[in-house]
Design a protein around this nucleic acid. Structure first.
Lengths: 207, 207
DNA sequence: TTTAAAATGTGACATTTGTCATATGGATTT
DNA sequence: AAATCCATATGACAAATGTCACATTTTAAA
């Protein structure tokens, strides 16, 4: 497996090279230190996987990745980042990068490369956690954060499924009145007015 | 590395087991064939990675994954799928699954497991390609496809925002009765029963 | 054991909701 | 001009909903 590394910190690229070459099936063909070099090196070496830092001066990793993907749609580019800067994630995905991982996580870089080499897309765990919020624009709150009991949460799910009180009562083996009482309490806790608002709340914050 | 496999096709689970056990660092501790078994086996074996099919009868993989993640927030669950059914992807991410890959891609399953074990999240390449569209405009159905007028759609949005009839009437300078009539028509067109179901419908299909 | 706190239930009540039949004024078509 | 359609409106009505005050039972704590 033929790899090219691009990072503007010489120290990092060398460490990466050292780590990767302990893997029998990996060879580091070249090292660059900015986006322009990345493009040039990619053309020259056509690596199986390009390992590239996102933040670099001259031309940043995203721009370079974009240019490379346009020219070589099958390129497998694994982006490295120091912190999980949200702003980049979506664009990285959109550009078609095959991964986005934290460069601190040394020991997990080799597995990531293997996965990418095998046609998959890899994200550092912490990074993936942000996707749902990016997709929806809001994070999923757990029902604990509103001091809702398990049963109350059950009921919310039925409401958010369009069930009326009778149906919920039948499903949960409760009387209709009890269901009403539950809903009344839930509405009070969440400062909502009626079941429709509750359903909306569910889809906006709990789903 | 301690793995549990869950797939309702015995043949698949056995093949997977065979493939995985060629890896020196992987041991398959148990095999199950439905979501309930998954939950039970997870509790029993606490595997490093749980490999589970998405589509199963009895209880599907997503529901099981959700239950397991709620109980064991650190669980590493790798979901297997036959085709890249879009609908599941977002939910898989939301639930916190650590991967979503095509089970056909035999040779790439081991690398995926390693990556997940190392704290990363893995997606089959074809699958990741769909994320951008899901992120942007999540295949929302247009209101035309339900023969809803512009005004009717306006009203739906208010309902899905938790407004009651009076509020909608004020916003749109209509009488409360008119709003009711509109909603009545909308419910008829969409074959729904009440405004709560309408709100749910909005979030499920129109949002 | 006694006490306290949940979970569950009931009945009464006002409000909101959804349905229906029907009416009016305007715009469009014939 | 007549017929038709559409948006809007009204009033009457039954059903569903949310609130409240209160029991009863079960569970957990002191």
């Amino acid at each position: 497996m033929n790899i090219v590394i691009v990072d503007d910190d010489q120290l990092v690229s060398m460490s990466l090279k050292t780590i990767l070459e302990t893997q029998p099936d990996i060879r580091v063909s070249a090292i660059g230190n900015n986006g322009e070099a990345a493009i040039r090196l990619y053309d020259t070496w056509l690596p199986d996987v390009l390992l590239m830092d996102i933040r670099m001066d001259k031309m940043d990793g995203l721009a370079a990745a974009d240019a490379i993907m346009k020219k070589h749609p099958d390129a497998k580019i694994l982006l490295l980042t120091t912190f999980s800067d949200d702003e980049y994630i979506i664009n990285a995905i959109r550009i078609g990068a095959k991964g986005y991982i934290l460069k601190q996580a040394f020991e997990s870089i080799a597995p990531a490369i293997h996965a990418v080499y095998n046609g998959q897309t890899v994200f550092g765990g912490e990074i993936m956690d942000k996707i749902p919020t990016l997709i929806q624009g809001q994070e999923r709150l757990s029902y604990e954060s509103f001091h809702l009991s398990e049963k109350e949460y059950d009921i919310i799910r039925f409401v958010a499924d369009g069930c009326n009180n009778r149906e919920i009562a039948n499903e949960l083996f409760l009387s209709e009145g009890t269901v009403r009482n539950y809903i009344s309490t839930i509405l009070e806790k969440l400062k909502l007015r009626d079941r429709t608002q509750l359903a909306c709340f569910y889809y906006k914050h709990l789903k």
